[in-house]
């Protein structure tokens, strides 16, 4: 819509790399209330469908010798399960479903965002911030409930000299409260940057004519990189969640 109106206007290069992040109502209208079905709703719903396809439909055979779909589902399961076990420890396995939920959602949301004309839900600060704050609040409450006052040991580093401890405690506290910010911005920023870059190159391709080969090659390369990034960022988000979980379960350094 926006592209059409702009194309009619005078002026050469019209690249609007951020238009793809606009939240729009799905069925027309301008108003966006909290319940309005928007393109966010659509692409979140598609992520849910992908999860169902992979983890429910893919494993319906329950085969000892798995089919391809079941293999992938098992691979995802074992991958996250091992990650939780290795990073958060055996007692962290209780929270495996939560981390699996986050990981599988982010993987599919990131991957769906790579489709042309799609909307990347994980490039939205609102989406990643909600997940990061949820993780932060959850592990903080868990840490206090599990360890009580002992949770403060996370900030009081007994292995450091006594003089340095207040300074370190200040740094630790700041870094602790910055966690949700870095946690959410990392994911959203990675997603946004890649998609914006692709859009910019696509804009170049539109005006270069035959020379468009170069930006198209660049788009291909960036898209390959983004495929990797979409998986890695899901992994990073999940493993950081595990790290925070470990800190909550075992605050002693």
């Amino acid at each position: 819509m926006a592209v059409d109106t702009k194309a009619a206007e005078p002026g050469g290069l019209q690249i609007k790399p951020m238009d793809q992040f606009l939240v729009k109502p799905l069925f027309g209208g301008d108003e966006i209330y909290w319940y309005t079905p928007t393109n966010v709703t659509l692409w979140l719903g598609l992520a849910v469908i992908c999860v169902i396809l992979l983890l429910v439909i893919g494993t319906r055979g329950r085969a000892i010798v798995p089919s391809r779909g079941q293999s992938v589902a098992e691979l995802a399961y074992v991958f996250v399960y091992k990650m939780v076990e290795d990073v958060a420890g055996k007692d962290g396995l209780k929270y495996f479903p939560y981390i699996m939920t986050l990981f599988i959602f982010i993987v599919f949301a990131n991957s769906l965002g790579l489709l042309p004309m799609s909307f990347t839900t994980t490039a939205q600060i609102a989406v990643t911030a909600v997940m990061a704050i949820a993780v932060f609040v959850f592990v903080t409450i868990l840490g206090v409930v599990k360890n009580g006052f002992g949770f403060l040991h996370l900030f009081w580093i007994t292995s450091a000299p006594l003089v340095l401890r207040p300074v370190l405690a200040l740094i630790e506290i700041i870094s602790y409260f910055v966690r949700p910010v870095s946690h959410s911005i990392r994911l959203a920023g990675n997603m946004m940057a890649g998609h914006a870059v692709i859009k910019v190159f696509a804009g170049f391709a539109g005006v270069l004519g035959v020379g468009a080969v170069a930006p198209i090659a660049a788009i291909t390369a960036v898209l390959a990189l983004e495929t990797l990034v979409s998986f890695i960022q899901a992994y990073v988000f999940a493993i950081l969640t595990c790290v925070y979980l470990r800190d909550a379960l075992h605050p002693h350094h």
């Binding site: 939240v23 966006i32 909290w34 979140l44 849910v48 999860v51 609102a126 909600v130």
Partner: peptide, 24 residues
Amino acid sequence: TFPNQIFWLVVTLIVIYFILTRIA
């Protein structure tokens, strides 16, 4: 647009959570 996004995200995460814990 935040309330909208947050609402649908929470719905999505709860749906995925139940799919995972109940079935998958």
